[in-house]
Design a binder for these strands. Structure first.
Lengths: 132, 132
DNA sequence: CAAAATGATACTTTTATAGTATCATTCATA
DNA sequence: TATGAATGATACTATAAAAGTATCATTTTG
């Protein structure tokens, strides 16, 4: 099972790399060289990070991306929410027509508990904490 | 994110239903009527449960499936392992060529911790406990 | 104005999940 | 002992999600 998808993982690497020179404007090409992520995919990820206010973007010649937030303020859960949608473990698999026991479903309750734990952990993991 | 896939979920329902008449031999058709699972898919799931020693199978006319284990001895994690493969959260996404920091990867360590928690919870959830 | 960058967005490929189909085998029983 | 009703084995197809690609438009610098 994958908790983290590839784009989230790439985003982590990108940001952790960029923080090494926090005031540098990186172009997509710069990052391709260093991070081994295919150019168009990397571009997509950078665009998304920009839309979500994590990177600042400069268009045109000499443009590129600049880290906008402190790496200590970016949490794993944020990135997961951006790239993977709202984190949830406990949705009923039968969304359209959930099983008749949905309200009393014990399984759901236990999943909810695990979800709560994971959320609290993921909330605490800043990218900064991955570097120390 | 899905912790539990559809076949695992179906398996839970099947077993929880069968335990209501623990000595009855159920045919696939019996179960289709009650559980709203498409016949060929249900059949596949029953065959897998049989192969994994959770159901006893009787071939031929008047055949069918009989619960072989006590429902208190069947754990959610067992079913997940059967239908979804070994549970793991912390595998590196880059299996073929894992990232150079694989040994020192902090993220991996944190995932490992969460995995440990989930495993311990999943180990404790017997199907019986879902019915009480 | 041209070159070099991102913006927006649509498309394709790959993988995993979900579901289907079918022939072989077994067994009870008429 | 032949038949019908069940599972065994297994291969196939369809759908959805993840991963990756392509391309034209827009902006900016020199």
């Amino acid at each position: 099972m994958k908790l983290i998808t590839r784009d989230t993982d790439y985003a982590i690497r990108i940001l952790c790399f960029m923080v090494e020179e926090p005031n540098k404007i990186f172009t997509t090409k710069d990052l391709v060289k260093k991070l081994n992520i295919p150019y168009p995919f990397l571009r997509k990820i950078l665009q998304i990070l920009h839309k979500n206010n994590i990177l600042e973007a400069f268009k045109g010649k000499r443009g590129g991306f600049l880290l906008k937030k402190s790496i200590d303020e970016i949490y794993l859960l944020d990135l997961m929410n951006i790239f993977q949608g709202k984190f949830s473990l406990s949705q009923c698999l039968f969304k359209k027509k959930p099983c008749p026991r949905i309200d009393s479903c014990k399984l759901r309750k236990k999943l909810k508990k695990m979800e709560g734990y994971l959320l609290s952990e993921l909330k605490r993991i800043s990218l900064g904490s991955l570097l120390k």
